[in-house]
Design a protein around this nucleic acid. Structure first.
Length: 399
DNA sequence: TCTGGGGTCCTAGGACCC
DNA sequence: TCTGGGGTCCTAGGACCC
C-alpha cells in the first residue's frame, strides 16, 4: 500500500489489500489496526522512484509508436492513438505493447482499446478487473461487446462522473454506463453541466469528442501546497514554508520557460470543532498582481512572504499552506536578454545556475535564506522506500 | 407613469481527474 | 492525535462598454 504525502491517506492498494477491505483514499490511521493485523506492507509516496519508472514505461511506448501518438495523461496512464493499426490487428498489437513494456521495464500494464477515450477507459477498467479472462487487454470493437461492457460498468466508475453526478444519476435511476449512454445530448446539457456532460454522452455513444492533447502544453497554473508535519503557530515557520514553496513553484515555472503575473498565497487554520465528517477548515488566502511577469525566485518570494504576513494571525494554529502562480506567459526575459545589459540579466543567470546546481546535486543544495534551515514544519514521510533508480547511495543491494 | 439591448471581460467557485 | 497534492475545464454573475 502507498500513502499520500504526510503519510495521511491511502492512495494505492494491491489487490490483496483491496480484498482485506482497506478503503481507498481513507485515512491511514483508521486502517492501521487492519494493516498491522495482516502485516500489510506500507510505504510513504516516493515521487523520485515513481517518476523515473513512469518515464521508462512512457519512453518504451514512444519507441514502439509513431511520433506524437502517445499522450501522457498522468504518472501511470496514457492515451495512445492507434488509428494506424488495422482493426483486426488491434488485439495482437495491444498484447505486443503490453508484453514489451513488461519485458523492458518490469512494470505490468493493462490496456483498453475502443473508439473514444471514455470507452477506452471503460475497456481498461474491465481488463484490469478480469485479469485472468482478458490477460490485461480488452478491445471493444463490436456493438455487442460495447453494450456488454457498458452494462457491467457502474455509472460512478465512468470517467467524468464524480461523487456529485453519481448521486444525481442514481436518483434518476441511471445506474450503469449503459443507462447513461442511452440519454440524449439535450438531456446531458441540462443535467450534466452543459458542455462537459454532452461531450461525455457523445463519447459513450462512440462519437469522438475528447481529442488527443498535444504533449508538452505549458501549465496554466502552478501550485506548491503542503500539509505541515505537525501544526504550526509561529510566523517565522510559516514564512519559511511559504518561501520554500515559492522556490519550488518558481522552479517548475522556469522548467517550462514561463513567467507568472499573479501570485496567490493561502494558509489553512486548524478546524476548531472536529465533526463526524472530515473537512478542511476554510483557507485564508490573498493574491497580488505583479508589476511585471517574473520567474525569478527572489522576485516572487518577496511578495509571497509579504502576503502571508498579512494573512497570519498570532495565536492561531495552522496545518497547511500553499503558493499558486497564475497569469502564466512565456518568459520574455529569455529572449530579451540579447539586448539588455548584463547587469539586468543577473537574476536570470543566477536562477539558471541555481537550477543547474540543484539538479546535479539534488535536495536544495542552494536555496534562499528566507526558506530557513531547520524546517520544523516539514511533512512526515516515515515509511519511504529507497529511491532505487535515481540515487547512487540508495541503489538496490543484493547480498 | 414611464427607465433598453447587446455585448465583452474577468473572477470565484464548482465539478471533475489521478 | 493523526485525513494529499496538483491540475483542468466550465458556468454564473458582476462590472463595464456603447
Amino acid at each position: 500500500m502507498v500513502l499520500s504525502n504526510n503519510d495521511g491517506c491511502i492512495i494505492s492498494r494491491s489487490d490483496e489489500a483491496k480484498k482485506l477491505g482497506v478503503a481507498m483514499a481513507g485515512p491511514y490511521f483508521k486502517a492501521k489496526p487492519l494493516i498491522e493485523k495482516y502485516g500489510v506492507a506500507t510505504f510513504s509516496s516516493n515521487y523520485n522512484l515513481y517518476g523515473d519508472l513512469s518515464w521508462r514505461v512512457m519512453e518504451t511506448l514512444r519507441m514502439l509508436l509513431p511520433p506524437g501518438t502517445v499522450e501522457v495523461y498522468s504518472v501511470d496512464e496514457c492515451f495512445i492513438d492507434l488509428s494506424h493499426i488495422k482493426p483486426d490487428e488491434l488485439q495482437a498489437f495491444a498484447v505486443y505493447l503490453k508484453e514489451t513494456v513488461e519485458e523492458w521495464t518490469g512494470i505490468k500494464v493493462s490496456i483498453g482499446v475502443a473508439a473514444t477515450k471514455v470507452l477506452s477507459k471503460v475497456a481498461n477498467r474491465l481488463s484490469k478487473k478480469h485479469k485472468e479472462a482478458t490477460q490485461g487487454v480488452l478491445v471493444l470493437d463490436t456493438p455487442g461487446r460495447i453494450q456488454q461492457a457498458l452494462q457491467k460498468t457502474p455509472v460512478e466508475d465512468v470517467w467524468g462522473v464524480g461523487y456529485q453526478y453519481a448521486e444525481k444519476l442514481r436518483r434518476l435511476n441511471i445506474n450503469t454506463a449503459y443507462d447513461l449512454s442511452k440519454q440524449d445530448i439535450v438531456w446531458a446539457n441540462k443535467h450534466l453541466g452543459g458542455v462537459t456532460g454532452s461531450r461525455l454522452i457523445r463519447e459513450l455513444k462512440g462519437i469522438e469528442s475528447i481529442g488527443m492533447k498535444e504533449e508538452l502544453v505549458n501549465k496554466k497554473m502552478i501550485a506548491t501546497t503542503r500539509m505541515f508535519g505537525s501544526p504550526v503557530t509561529e510566523l517565522q515557520d510559516i514564512r519559511e514554508a511559504i518561501a520554500t514553496y515559492t522556490s519550488r513553484a518558481a522552479e517548475k515555472l522556469r522548467r517550462q520557460y514561463s513567467a507568472a503575473n499573479i501570485i496567490n498565497v493561502f494558509i489553512v487554520p486548524k478546524e476548531e470543532s472536529h465533526n463526524t465528517r472530515f473537512r478542511h477548515g476554510p483557507s485564508i488566502g490573498s493574491y497580488v498582481v505583479l508589476p511585471q511577469a517574473s520567474s525569478a525566485t527572489n522576485e516572487l518570494i518577496k511578495p509571497a512572504v509579504a502576503l502571508v504576513e498579512r494573512l497570519y494571525e498570532s495565536g492561531k494554529i495552522y496545518k497547511k499552506a500553499g503558493v499558486m502562480l497564475s497569469g502564466i506567459v512565456p518568459d520574455t526575459s529569455i529572449q530579451g536578454n540579447l539586448f539588455t545589459p548584463p547587469a539586468e540579466n543577473k537574476s536570470r543567470l543566477l536562477m539558471s545556475m541555481i537550477d543547474n546546481v540543484n539538479f546535479a546535486m539534488r535536495d536544495d543544495v542552494l536555496k534562499f535564506a528566507a526558506s530557513g534551515t531547520s524546517r520544523d514544519w516539514k511533512m512526515r514521510q516515515e515509511l519511504r522506500s529507497p529511491r532505487y533508480t535515481t540515487r547512487w547511495d540508495e541503489l538496490f543491494e543484493i547480498k
